[in-house]
């Protein structure tokens, strides 16, 4: 049986605005992926533990508070520590253009700002998760 793409949708930081996380979670599920939603106020440690336990292919972070420069590098470092750097990390939220290059350098594959289309997010994940990168069809 084909394995479905597994995505952890995570909401780190103190912010409670969860509209984006929930809408994206639903869109990924409708696109045939297995989606685990962490709920609010997750630390990078909690997110990495969940990613490990759930054996996910992708982590989708939702950060609207401007805390991305503190949270994302910590999360990516933890992933490396646990040898999980092949998990695709994508970020959605309010992120100034000037921050994007540095976020990508730490390991974020794509940043989706307000106005991004659900189809584009689905397609990006489908074409960039490790199973595809490793050369076989999901």
């Amino acid at each position: 049986m084909e394995r479905k793409i597994r995505v952890l949708v995570a909401k780190p930081g103190l912010d409670g605005h969860d509209r984006g996380a929930k809408v994206v979670a639903r869109a990924l599920r409708d696109a045939g992926m297995e989606v685990i939603y962490t709920g609010l106020r997750q630390t990078p440690e909690m997110i990495v533990t969940a990613a490990l336990q759930e054996d996910v292919d992708c982590i989708g972070l939702s950060i609207l508070s401007g805390a991305h420069n503190a949270i994302v590098p910590r999360l990516c470092a933890l992933l490396k520590e646990h040898h999980l750097e092949d998990i695709l990390v994508v970020l959605g939220g309010i992120v100034p253009d000037a921050d994007i290059a540095a976020l990508k350098a730490t390991g974020v594959a794509a940043v989706f700002p307000p106005g991004a289309r659900l189809d584009d997010i689905v397609t990006f994940i489908r074409t960039h998760v490790r199973s595809v990168a490793a050369g076989y069809q999901p």
């Binding site: 401007g66 992120v95 100034p96 253009d97 000037a98 994007i100 290059a101 794509a110 940043v111 989706f112 700002p113 106005g115 991004a116 289309r117 584009d120 990006f124």
Partner: peptide, 20 residues
């Protein structure tokens, strides 16, 4: 027209933003 997509993929930054 008023589309979306991945940040930084299509249009150059047209506004400078407040940094804290």
């Amino acid at each position: 027209g008023v589309g979306g997509g991945e940040a930084g993929a299509s249009d150059p930054a047209v506004v400078s933003t407040l940094q804290i």
